[in-house]
Simulated scan of single mutants.
Amino acid sequence: MPSRTSPRLDARKKPRQARALATLDAIFEATIQVLLTDGPYRLTTTRVALRAGVSVGTMYQYFPNKQALFYALNERYMDTLAEKVETTCKARHGIPVRQMVEALLTTYWNAKMERPDVTQALYRAIAELDNGPLIEAFGRRVDAATTTMLSSASDAVFTDLPGVNLTLLTTIFGTVRNVFERNLPSTEAEAVREQLLLMCTAYLEAVSAQRTPGANPAALRCGCDAAATAS
């Protein structure tokens, strides 16, 4: 069977001047609105150009097809989301793990809920896009930020930090996405958020070893590993 050729996903033109950046913002906003009203399958670059108030020629200068447009929209969104998570994690080094989880969950939740229409639109566009590279890049950035934060917790240490971190993020990300897929009303969504915080906090407390004041994290991990081997 012949292999399918992937459509070109990179933008043709990188905006640098303020006017070009404004044009790109208008195109992205128009893409979101067309996605919400027409869905990903009926969306065309012509419809987006009309909604954005730009010519089809201008549209084509940036994006050769709608897959490239979807890719760029997702790339911008995920880059902004990763930056927010990184900033939150860097500011929470050395505090109790419960406060870390609350800050992480609040940041991710608020980012998704800040503009629910954008989140909904991007979820709709995923069916039209192979965004594996974007997800991998986002995952690497978030994993690095959260594992570094958790490793500095003042009151806990994790012998399998990568596994714990993966479980934590999968739980948070999956739950938040399900809230959108179910289109839950705000009261129910907020109830889920509170339960999610409780669940994540209880999980981290269950899998962590208590850290004594002044204890060396590496030494404590070694001690836990040795105890596990002996048992």
Rank of each mutant, 00 (worst) to 15 (best):
A82D: 09
V56A: 14
W109C: 01
L220D: 02
Q61Y: 10
D160T: 07
L104N: 01
P7W: 11
F180P: 03
A228P: 02
E188R: 06
P185K: 10
P2N: 06
L168H: 06
V164E: 01
T106H: 15
T87I: 12
R8T: 14
Y62P: 03
A68F: 08
M59E: 05
L129F: 04
A145K: 01
R92K: 12
R76S: 14
L73N: 08
G139N: 13
V118H: 12
H93R: 15
P116I: 07
G53Q: 11
T58Y: 01
T80P: 00
T148I: 06
R140D: 10
L24R: 03
A228D: 09
S208W: 00
L166G: 03
I172Q: 14
L36D: 04
T148G: 12
R51I: 13
T37P: 00
F63V: 04
L24P: 01
C222R: 10
A215M: 12
D38Q: 09
P213D: 12
P64T: 04
K66M: 12
V85L: 03
Y123E: 12
K66D: 13
G94M: 12
W109S: 06
A153F: 04
A127K: 07
S3E: 07
G174H: 04
K14M: 08
F180T: 01
A145V: 09
G39I: 12
R8Q: 13
R221G: 01
R51M: 15
V34K: 04
A218V: 15
V164I: 03
R140I: 06
D38M: 02
T212C: 05
T119M: 14
D160P: 02
L204G: 11
A215P: 06
N110P: 05
I95A: 13
R76T: 13
R177L: 15
I172Y: 13
T119R: 06
G174I: 11
V54G: 04
A26F: 06
R19L: 12
A144C: 04
R4T: 06
L220I: 03
P162D: 08
P217W: 10
R42P: 03
M149H: 01
N183K: 15
E86P: 06
A156T: 08
A52V: 04
S3P: 02
S208Y: 01
T119E: 10
G53R: 09
L21H: 13
T171A: 08
A215S: 15
R124W: 00
S3H: 11
Q195P: 02
T119V: 06
E83S: 10
M149L: 13
M149W: 06
L43S: 00
G39P: 07
T58R: 05
T212D: 14
L204N: 09
